[in-house]
């Protein structure tokens, strides 16, 4: 693509040219309730992509489908790893989505292993390479040098993350003893310790104060730029979304109502309507209609 083509709105946006994750015709029904309805979007490699929408729009359901919590009723989820391998997430057992397809996630309500230490939380995330290195524990018991080296590497990687999120002093404390903001940071670090290619964050800024929220933005940029990990996040805090997202997908009632760069989405009338309600004259028209129906019913 030539330099000039970038200035003009290109026909295929970057995220469709090289997606790390392709969501195609995703539908999730719970009995009669359609939580996600024929949803398609792409997550660009190396992008921070945000999914926004009012409460109950189906955002978390999309995450649950991607990470194997739910089996989607219909649709296809293709993970394209950097080295070229492709994985159909909807067909994989949950642990392989993390281990082989390299998808990691965090939760809206924090799910750390509270009884384990901060460092151990990060070590569990590196379970698979260690298991292999220890020949399924036998080598670990015998203290083979090969295993000790891998263990040291894993501790080194975990330590670098603890320094990054300023929790190195608390490495040996139980995770449940950390303050709320620190638990959020630890959860992101733990997800990063699985060395994912896409990191799915469910409302990472929920409950954070403005300072912590700004810190989170820096952390997410670091993850994108330094660790070359694509980020997909659900967020309500518009200041976070608009500041750091490269690409925004808007959901309402399980359907996609807008999809594009953050500054375009900000001014999209459909998005404004979903977030702020419909225009006043439309409300009046609807109320009149209801009155007419009532009168008609009374006349009968």
């Amino acid at each position: 693509m030539s330099e000039t083509a970038i200035a003009a709105p290109s026909p295929t946006p970057r995220w469709e040219a090289d997606p790390v994750l392709d969501v195609e015709h995703l539908t999730m029904r719970f009995g009669g309730l359609v939580a996600v309805d024929d949803l398609s979007f792409a997550v660009g490699r190396g992008d921070i992509t945000a999914i926004i929408g009012p409460n109950g729009a189906g955002k978390t359901t999309v995450f649950n489908c991607i990470t194997g919590f739910y089996k989607p009723t219909e649709g296809r989820l293709t993970m394209r790893r950097a080295e070229g391998e492709e994985f159909l997430l909807e067909r994989m057992p949950d642990f392989q989505i993390a281990a082989r397809a390299k998808v990691a996630r965090t939760f809206q309500n924090i799910r750390l292993f509270g009884g384990m230490t901060v460092l151990e939380n990060l070590m569990v995330a590196q379970h698979n390479p260690l298991m292999k290195a220890s020949y399924f524990t036998f080598g670990g018991v015998l203290g083979l040098s090969h295993y000790r080296r891998s263990e040291k590497e894993a501790i080194g990687f975990a330590t670098s993350w603890l320094e990054q999120i300023r929790l190195i002093d608390r490495a040996d404390d139980p995770a449940a003893d950390l303050p709320y903001g620190a638990q959020r940071r630890l959860e992101i670090a733990r997800a990063m310790c699985t060395r994912p290619e896409i990191l799915c964050l469910d409302e990472p800024a929920a409950g954070l104060n403005p300072r912590e929220s700004a810190e989170l933005n820096d952390l997410l940029r670091l993850i994108r730029d330094e660790y070359q990990t694509s980020v997909l996040l659900i967020e309500h805090d518009m200041s976070v979304v608009m500041e750091i997202s490269d690409h925004v997908v808007v959901l309402d009632y399980g359907k996609k109502i807008a999809d594009g760069p953050a500054d375009v989405i900000r001014n999209d009338p459909a998005v404004i309507a979903a977030y702020l309600g419909v225009e006043d004259d439309e409300v009046e028209a609807a109320e009149e209609e209801v009155e007419e129906i009532k009168e008609e019913a009374e006349r009968r």
């Binding site: 990691a104 799910r111 384990m116």
Partner: peptide, 18 residues
């Protein structure tokens, strides 16, 4: 470590590749 992790939250352990 993974045994203790499964003890606390099996689903989360699976999401970390255990």
């Amino acid at each position: 470590r993974s045994q203790r992790a499964c003890e606390q939250d099996r689903k989360m352990a699976a999401l970390l590749g255990v």
